[in-house]
């Protein structure tokens, strides 16, 4: 086996940029440009505004009504410098969400742009579609879907608290890596209110093509939701044991057939 063959075999066990070769003490032209493109994709994920109208249309096709809100960070530059502002609602947004959801609901889904608009655009509609079936199974009342611009994870707390939701699912674009610019994260918070700490949330991350499939993510989130409603808490005290449920379900063929349609 040549050295090049040996490297090729090892690229199957790691996505690390190994065996790149060199031009003197520098990287080859090919490696430099590949890296530059990966960085450009990640930069665009952070900087490109989310196409909210496209997302709203996709959710309407799932029969969902949407309400638009914004955080207190007026633009992307402020958003990046001031995470505290991205966690709070702009004044007018609070009234809008209350008007759109006059009655208390058990569950509110908030979709925030976060740090990757491409992650949201690519993965949020599929995840919501998979979630809706499980929400129906759970019998939980669901409010309109809240679309939140310049949002951090904790923004969902204020949104949900203002309409009296028992739990909130925040679906948000994750900080992009070079190999994963389009990743969506989902955060579950029980009894959401302003000031909740990150340790009081459960997170299902890396939802993307090549990562966690939307149907699988929805299964885990529904499992966590059910457990959170029973135990009346979320976070580090609520350990994700959905894999056990998954194994039990797999032992009974057909039990997950509906969930599997999301693939």
């Amino acid at each position: 086996m040549s050295a090049e063959d040996a490297w090729r075999a090892l690229r199957g066990v790691t996505a690390a940029r190994i065996g790149l070769g060199r031009s003197g003490s520098a990287q080859t032209t090919r490696a430099v440009l590949d890296f530059a493109m990966a960085h450009a994709l990640a930069r665009d994920a952070v900087r490109t505004p989310l196409a909210w109208d496209v997302l709203e249309a996709a959710l309407a096709a799932l029969g969902q009504r949407c309400v638009h809100v914004a955080s207190a960070a007026p633009d992307r530059d402020v958003y990046l410098r001031r995470p505290d502002l991205g966690r709070r609602l702009a004044a007018a947004s609070r009234e809008r969400v209350v008007a759109a959801c006059p009655e208390p609901r058990e569950l509110l889904i908030v979709i925030g742009d976060g740090l990757s608009s491409t992650g949201v655009a690519a993965n949020a509609p599929g995840l919501v579609a998979a979630l809706l079936r499980l929400v129906q199974d759970g019998g939980w009342t669901l409010g309109p879907i809240v679309l939140a611009a310049q949002a951090r994870v904790a923004l969902g707390d204020e949104v949900a608290e203002s309409v009296g939701a028992r739990a909130v699912l925040m679906l948000i674009g994750e900080r992009p890596g070079l190999s994963s610019p389009d990743s969506l994260g989902a955060y579950l918070t029980y009894a959401p209110r302003v000031g909740r700490r990150d340790a009081e949330r459960n997170c299902v991350s890396n939802i993307r093509a090549g990562g966690l499939a939307p149907a699988e993510a929805a299964f885990r989130l529904a499992w966590l939701l059910r457990a959170a409603f029973v135990r009346r808490l979320s976070g580090v005290q609520l350990k994700d044991e959905s894999d056990v449920a998954r194994e039990l379900a797999n032992a009974r063929p057909g039990a997950l057939a509906r969930d599997g349609e999301g693939h």
Binding site: T14, A16, R17, L20, S25, Q27, A31, P176, L178
Partner: peptide, 19 residues
């Protein structure tokens, strides 16, 4: 490797940078 940390998702310096 290639300045791309695939676990921590950030860019550091590469073996080539050290060279």
């Amino acid at each position: 490797p290639g300045a791309d940390d695939i676990m921590l998702n950030y860019q550091s310096t590469s073996f080539h940078d050290a060279l």
